[in-house]
């Protein structure tokens, strides 16, 4: 069976309940429509990685490890480092995840996170050249989902960003100079919305995600630019809805950014 994001059957009563709450301007876990679940971040969680972050977004938990190794540049970008992203939806994290090759959900997730980081030029890849045309740093961003309670897009995006911000390029280990902090230009933050009935809520939890008709992720930078969008699921959005979602994402993203980068600076371990 293919892995499914939603747990499938939410009792009809729960669906009605969520919609009834929406009418009153609230949500099943008491949040406002633009309120993101509490975010907890532990950077430096994996000592073997060059950068890491364990991120909790409500009950959703994602661990990102960044490994950085020398490699060959792409022929068309001889003076730039390389980044790659991968997501593993390991079966430990949900009864609906199954072992095996990456599902289309995992691929989509990784690619949406990748686009936000790549298109905003979050990592200063031009500073990751060891020998032009010959040897550059390759940044592997591996995202391990550990507990799935909805909205993996934002949890993975936040975890990837904070792990990158935590990362040290291990030049000494490879005997190519002194270690240095992974150079960052920008801090893209994805904010995902779910459309439930006629309501659109930020950071959907599992219950909300499982009854959502449509989903839209918007990744914005600290400069107020939009760097990535991805619409998903079987429903549609009107243009007016999309415009509002982009604006909401800009302001929610800014708040989340302040929160997570503050947290990442004051490392606890």
């Amino acid at each position: 069976m293919t892995t499914k994001f939603s747990e499938g059957v939410v009792a009809e009563s729960k669906r009605d309940y969520i919609k009834k709450l929406a009418l009153q301007g609230t949500r099943i876990d008491g949040r406002g429509f633009d309120e993101v679940r509490p975010i907890k971040i532990k950077t430096g969680f994996i000592k073997r990685a060059d950068g890491s972050a364990l991120v909790e977004l409500g009950d959703t938990k994602v661990l990102v490890g960044v490994k950085i190794e020398p490699g060959e540049p792409f022929p068309d970008t001889p003076n730039m480092g390389i980044m790659t992203t991968n997501v593993e939806l390991v079966p430990l994290a949900s009864p609906t995840f199954e072992p095996g090759p990456p599902s289309e959900e995992a691929i989509e997730l990784a690619r949406v996170v990748d686009r936000g980081i790549r298109e905003s030029h979050a990592i200063d890849l031009e500073k990751l050249v060891i020998e032009e045309g010959e040897k550059v740093w390759v940044v592997f961003i591996d995202m391990h989902v550990l507990d799935y309670h909805g909205n993996l897009f934002d949890a993975c995006g936040i975890a990837a960003l904070t792990a990158l911000n935590d990362a040290i390029v291990p030049a000494e280990r490879f005997e190519v100079g002194e270690d240095f902090k992974l150079p960052m230009n920008h801090y893209p933050v994805p904010v995902t919305f779910a459309k439930i009935g006629e309501w659109i809520v930020a950071d959907p939890n599992l219950d909300e995600e499982s009854i959502a008709k449509a989903r839209l992720t918007v990744t914005t930078s600290e400069e107020g630019k939009i760097n990535a969008m991805q619409k998903g699921l079987f429903g549609t959005f009107t243009y007016e809805e999309v415009k509002k979602v982009i604006n909401r994402s800009l302001s929610i993203g800014q708040k989340v950014r302040e929160q997570i980068l503050g947290g990442a600076d004051g490392e606890e371990n």
Binding site: G224, N227, T238
Partner: peptide, 16 residues
């Protein structure tokens, strides 16, 4: 007919 958006993706660097 309705102006609904069924697919939407974006990559790059754009202002609102």
């Amino acid at each position: 007919r309705t102006g609904e958006i069924a697919l939407l993706q974006m990559d790059g660097d754009l202002t609102y």
